[in-house]
């Protein structure tokens, strides 16, 4: 699995498509109210999935750990929403922390971790 993180609008998805020769149809985009499809070659917007986890009382790390076989060869993309100010709302705080923990777990499992900054790729692992 290859993990790509970075802030909003920093070019994560374009980079994934270019580096891994992904077509738009091979990318599953998580939505706040939608399902996750771990069998896709690439899963984008994991931060939307973690928000749903927070609302449903699901631990995203446990969710991924139980399904490791499904995503171990995937490209996963997540926004680093855990860098900003601690938000005032309890849900946003839980979301921020759940996303941080998931990215730490996924970084440990990844063969490569890349952080995007202004369209430039920084290799973290």
């Amino acid at each position: 699995m290859d993990l790509i993180i970075g802030g909003a609008y920093q070019g994560k998805r374009e980079y994934a498509k270019s580096r891994f020769s992904l077509g738009e149809e091979e990318i599953f985009t998580c939505r706040e109210d939608g399902e996750i499809c771990l069998s896709a070659r690439c899963v984008d917007r994991l931060e939307e999935f973690t928000l749903r986890c927070v609302r449903d009382g699901v631990d995203p790390v446990a969710f991924f750990r139980e399904r490791e076989g499904e995503w171990q060869d995937s490209v996963l993309i997540c926004q680093d929403i855990f860098c900003g100010v601690v938000p005032l709302g309890a849900e946003n705080r839980a979301w921020r922390e759940a996303t941080g923990r998931l990215c730490v777990y996924l970084s440990g499992k990844a063969v490569s971790v890349t952080r995007m900054f202004c369209g430039l790729a920084q290799r973290l692992k």
């Binding site: 802030g7 909003a8 855990f82 100010v85 938000p87 705080r93 979301w95």
Partner: peptide
Amino acid sequence: DAIYSDAIR
């Protein structure tokens, strides 16, 4: 300024 990494809608 890098203002892209917040847990806020």
